[in-house]
Amino acid sequence: TEIRININGVTIHVRDASEELKKLIEHLLRLGADEKEIREVLHRWEK
């Protein structure tokens, strides 16, 4: 699944996002995570 996240005008594009990762990101956004925090989570997730 491919997702695009727009945070304050900055688009983060994620290829091959699992449903689990998608739910995690949606949850973090609801909690008010910023772009830097989302990128950090994505970076750690890929490892």
Rank of each mutant, 00 (worst) to 15 (best):
E2F: 06
R44G: 06
E20W: 08
L31N: 14
H43A: 15
L31D: 12
D16S: 08
V14N: 01
E40T: 06
D34G: 10
K22T: 12
L42C: 04
D16F: 07
K22W: 13
I25Y: 01
K22S: 09
K22N: 06
R4K: 11
S18Y: 03
V14K: 01
T11A: 08
E2D: 11
V14W: 04
K22P: 02
L28R: 05
I12Y: 04
E26A: 10
D16K: 10
E40G: 04
L24P: 00
L28V: 08
E35M: 08
I25F: 04
G32T: 02
R44N: 15
T11H: 13
E35A: 08
L21A: 02
N8L: 06
R4Q: 14
V14C: 07
E26N: 11
L24Q: 13
V14Y: 06
R30M: 09
T11N: 10
R4D: 09
T1W: 14
N8K: 07
G9E: 06
D34S: 10
L29C: 05
I12A: 02
H13D: 06
L42P: 00
V41T: 13
I12Q: 01
I5T: 01
E19V: 11
D16W: 07
L42H: 00
L28D: 00
D16R: 07
I7S: 03
A33R: 07
H27C: 07
R30F: 13
I12W: 02
A17N: 05
R30P: 02
T11D: 07
K36Y: 09
K23I: 15
G9Y: 01
K36H: 11
W45P: 01
E35V: 09
H27R: 13
K23D: 12
I38A: 01
H43E: 15
R15Q: 14
E37P: 01
R4N: 12
N8A: 08
I5N: 01
L21Q: 03
I38F: 06
R4Y: 14
I38D: 00
E37S: 07
E26P: 00
L21K: 01
A17L: 06
E46Y: 15
L24R: 08
L42R: 00
L24D: 04
R44H: 15
G9C: 02
L42W: 02
E40F: 04
T1H: 15
I25H: 00
R30N: 14
G32L: 02
V14L: 07
L24H: 14
W45C: 04
R39D: 15
E26V: 12
L31G: 11
E40Y: 07
H27D: 12
T1Q: 12
K36M: 11
R30W: 13
H43L: 15
W45L: 03
E2H: 11
D34T: 12
V41K: 03
W45T: 01
H27Q: 11
R4I: 14
S18K: 05
A17H: 05
L24S: 05
K47S: 15
N8W: 04
N6P: 06
K36D: 13
E35I: 13
K23F: 15
G32N: 09
T1S: 12
D16T: 07
E19Q: 10
V41M: 11
W45S: 01
R15W: 10
D34N: 09
E35K: 02
T1I: 14
I12R: 00
I3K: 01
V14P: 01
K23R: 12
R39E: 04
H43V: 13
N8T: 04
H13W: 09
E40M: 05
L21M: 04
L28W: 04
A33I: 06
A17G: 09
S18I: 05
I7Y: 04
D16Y: 08
K23T: 14
I3W: 15
K23C: 06
N6Y: 11
E2P: 08
L24I: 11
R39T: 06
W45Q: 01
I5M: 04
L29K: 03
A33Y: 06
I5P: 01
E20T: 09
E35S: 08
G9V: 02
I7R: 01
L24W: 10
K36N: 10
S18C: 01
K36W: 11
D34F: 04
V14H: 03
N8F: 06
E46Q: 09
D16M: 04
E2N: 10
L42A: 02
E20N: 09
K23S: 15
D34H: 07
K47Q: 15
N8E: 07
E37W: 13
K23V: 11
V14I: 09
L21F: 05
G32Y: 03
I25R: 00
E19T: 10
H43Y: 10
L31H: 12
E35G: 05
I25C: 02
A33W: 06
H27N: 14
K47H: 15
T1G: 09
E2R: 02
E46G: 14
V41I: 07
R15D: 09
V14E: 01
E26L: 12
V10A: 09
I25A: 01
I7P: 01
I7T: 03
K47C: 15
K23W: 12
E19Y: 12
N8C: 04
I12S: 02
R4L: 15
H27F: 09
S18M: 04
A17Y: 08
A33H: 05
D16E: 14
I12K: 00
G9N: 08
R39Y: 04
H13L: 13
H43K: 15
A33E: 03
I25L: 14
N8R: 04
T1D: 10
N6A: 07
E46S: 04
E37D: 08
R39K: 09
E2G: 09
L42G: 00
I3E: 03
N6G: 04
K23Q: 14
H27S: 13
T11P: 04
T1C: 15
I7K: 03
L31T: 14
L21C: 03
A33S: 09
A33D: 02
V41P: 00
R30T: 12
L29I: 13
N6W: 07
K22H: 10
I12G: 00
I3N: 02
L28Q: 05
L42M: 03
R15E: 08
K22A: 12
G9I: 02
V41W: 08
E2A: 08
H13F: 12
V10K: 07
E19C: 14
K36I: 09
R30S: 14
G9M: 03
H13S: 10
E46M: 09
E26I: 12
L31S: 12
L29W: 08
W45H: 04
L21V: 04
H27A: 12
K23H: 14
H43R: 13
I38W: 04
K36A: 15
T11S: 09
N6L: 11
H13N: 07
I12E: 01
E19A: 13
K47D: 15
L24M: 12
E46L: 15
L24V: 13
H43G: 05
